[in-house]
Computed example of a mutant assay.
Amino acid sequence: MNFTPVSLPIALCLVMFSVVVAAAGLTVAVRSWAMRRNALVHPSERCSHTIPTPHGGGIAIASISIILGVLFSVLDWVPDSSMLAFISLGFMMLALGVWDDFGDVSAKLRLCAHFAVVIVGMWSIPRLPVFSLFGMEVDSAVAFLLWPLLVLSWVWLINLYNFMDGIDGLAAVQGLVLFAGMALNFWYLGYGQWAWICLFILAAVLGFTILNWPPAKIFMGDGGSGFLGFIIGFMMLLSAAQSSVSMWSWIILLTLFIADATTTLIVRFVTHQDIFAAHRLHAYQKLTVRFAGRHLPVTLGYGAVMLFVLVPVSWLANRVPHSGPVLFAILFAVASLGMLRLGCGRLDKTDN
């Protein structure tokens, strides 16, 4: 079927609306199934919830996104080989997450699976990115020492997204603003197809967010958070291979999640805590328990900082060549210092 230049955006908007409806409907179905099976997350040392709530809602995000991968390939927006890898690896991440949500997966097996998925994912990218580092360009395709760093960074992204899925709506809002911000960056530099890819994934996340909004009727679970960490890393590398949009734009938009997860981990390691034990010591959890008393203000606060600070700075990283590393370093330092002042990673009388 042929579309005119005017009718194509209308058709794509209709598809986006359909994606939102499909994701919301599938989330409702998963919630209904989880309630019947009594598959509930109970209050624990890891989460900041007080009411048992069904989980696994991220299945909707992952399933719809995998189907969208087929659409992207059919529309010839991305290489078929890359989308084949995305679909197969995405299904593996979904299956692993669902197994972890409703079964029992050892941490070692899960981590090994993450490394395997990431290594195959990197191999499927047509060309690894050229990084701008303080005015110099470093081609990671020929700088072999960067390959382990890319693998570790992608695995860390998958896991930190899981760590940050601890209060209602937070991980979903991160995904919404991230993909919206990147859509703006792609449109600014003239990559309309990649802007639509981001908007379609945003639509899948939005459908789930309707039921995850505080107070959440269903949680994302590992099937969603791990998948989102995977898909963000995949899109980051693949878009760098197909466009001139700075990878630092993606990284800048992830600043709050990166700073919170990384700073908390470092503090717990330095203070001789068991870094593999469940906890509620992230900055967003400290804010929820000590100051806000509810999830909604913290979720909205993180979203507002992303929307009004990180989105403009991510645009600046494309507007001013080679500025990305400096901008991210400043943002990361400021965010980390603020989170340290909140006491992230530190045990006190109110923490278990």
Rank of each mutant, 00 (worst) to 15 (best):
Y191F: 13
V117S: 01
Q242L: 15
G25L: 10
P52F: 05
V173F: 10
L152F: 15
F179E: 05
L75Y: 12
G135I: 06
A116T: 14
S153V: 11
T262G: 01
V267F: 03
I51P: 08
S153I: 09
L199Q: 03
H55C: 07
L40G: 08
T350S: 12
A22G: 12
A60R: 02
F230E: 04
F227W: 09
G121H: 00
L206P: 04
L75F: 14
M16G: 11
A317Y: 08
L96Q: 02
V20G: 07
F91S: 09
Y302I: 10
H55W: 14
I59Q: 00
L256D: 06
A95N: 01
I258Q: 06
I251E: 05
M122P: 13
W77E: 06
S7L: 13
I87D: 05
I10R: 05
R294T: 07
V173N: 00
F227A: 03
G324V: 04
I10H: 06
M136G: 07
M306F: 08
W248P: 09
G56F: 00
F269K: 14
G192H: 14
M136E: 15
N38D: 14
V21K: 07
L150Q: 09
V28L: 15
V6K: 08
S336I: 13
H272G: 02
A261L: 05
Q273P: 09
Y188W: 15
L253A: 02
V270P: 07
T27V: 03
Y284H: 10
A204E: 07
S63W: 10
L287A: 10
T209N: 09
G301D: 08
A240Q: 10
S48R: 04
M93D: 01
F230S: 00
T271L: 13
L347W: 15
P312C: 02
G233D: 04
I197T: 09
L160M: 14
H279E: 06
K217A: 10
T271E: 14
V30E: 03
D101T: 02
L176I: 11
C344N: 09
F291I: 13
M247R: 05
L40F: 15
L26T: 06
I119W: 05
W196A: 01
L109Y: 10
